[in-house]
Amino acid sequence: SIEEEIKKAEEAKEKGKTFIHGDFVATTEELLDELLKRLRKKL
């Protein structure tokens, strides 16, 4: 679910890890923020 993806992305951000969502690879905090923004729009 979208909620689960958001939670996983937030955890990755806290730990400074890379998060992959489909073909979107978030390797930096900026990219994770962008991904979180996109996911929240889908809610």
Results as ranks from 00 to 15, higher is better:
1 S>G: 10
1 S>L: 10
1 S>Y: 13
2 I>L: 13
2 I>E: 02
2 I>T: 05
2 I>N: 02
3 E>A: 13
3 E>L: 14
3 E>P: 05
3 E>N: 06
4 E>I: 10
4 E>Q: 09
4 E>M: 09
4 E>T: 05
5 E>G: 04
5 E>H: 09
6 I>R: 02
6 I>W: 02
6 I>F: 01
6 I>N: 01
6 I>A: 02
6 I>P: 01
7 K>T: 08
7 K>S: 07
7 K>R: 15
7 K>E: 07
7 K>Q: 11
7 K>D: 03
7 K>L: 08
8 K>E: 05
8 K>V: 03
8 K>Q: 12
8 K>H: 08
8 K>F: 04
8 K>W: 09
8 K>A: 11
8 K>N: 08
9 A>Q: 02
9 A>F: 04
9 A>G: 04
9 A>N: 03
9 A>I: 14
10 E>Q: 10
10 E>A: 03
10 E>G: 02
10 E>L: 14
11 E>T: 06
11 E>F: 05
11 E>K: 04
11 E>S: 05
11 E>I: 07
11 E>C: 15
11 E>Q: 07
11 E>D: 12
12 A>I: 04
12 A>K: 00
12 A>E: 04
12 A>R: 01
13 K>Q: 05
13 K>D: 01
13 K>V: 03
14 E>M: 12
14 E>Y: 11
14 E>C: 14
14 E>N: 11
15 K>Y: 11
15 K>W: 10
15 K>M: 12
15 K>L: 13
15 K>D: 05
15 K>F: 09
15 K>C: 15
16 G>T: 04
16 G>F: 09
17 K>H: 14
17 K>S: 10
17 K>G: 13
17 K>R: 10
18 T>S: 10
18 T>Y: 12
18 T>M: 10
18 T>W: 14
19 F>M: 06
19 F>H: 06
19 F>R: 00
20 I>E: 05
20 I>D: 01
20 I>Y: 08
21 H>A: 07
21 H>Q: 04
21 H>R: 04
21 H>M: 10
21 H>G: 08
22 G>I: 13
22 G>Y: 11
22 G>M: 08
23 D>K: 07
23 D>F: 13
23 D>P: 06
24 F>Y: 07
24 F>A: 01
25 V>T: 06
25 V>C: 01
25 V>E: 08
25 V>L: 09
25 V>I: 12
26 A>N: 02
26 A>Q: 02
26 A>W: 10
26 A>V: 08
27 T>Y: 14
27 T>S: 14
27 T>A: 12
27 T>L: 10
27 T>W: 14
28 T>N: 10
28 T>P: 02
28 T>L: 12
30 E>S: 10
30 E>V: 06
30 E>G: 05
30 E>A: 12
31 L>T: 05
31 L>N: 03
31 L>S: 05
32 L>A: 00
33 D>P: 00
33 D>Q: 05
34 E>K: 10
34 E>V: 05
35 L>K: 00
35 L>S: 00
35 L>Q: 00
35 L>N: 00
36 L>F: 01
36 L>T: 00
36 L>K: 00
37 K>H: 08
37 K>G: 07
37 K>T: 11
37 K>Y: 09
37 K>L: 13
37 K>A: 13
38 R>D: 10
38 R>H: 15
39 L>H: 02
39 L>A: 00
39 L>M: 03
40 R>M: 11
40 R>H: 13
40 R>V: 10
41 K>L: 08
41 K>E: 14
42 K>Y: 13
42 K>V: 09
42 K>I: 14
42 K>N: 06
43 L>R: 05
43 L>W: 06
43 L>Y: 07
43 L>V: 02
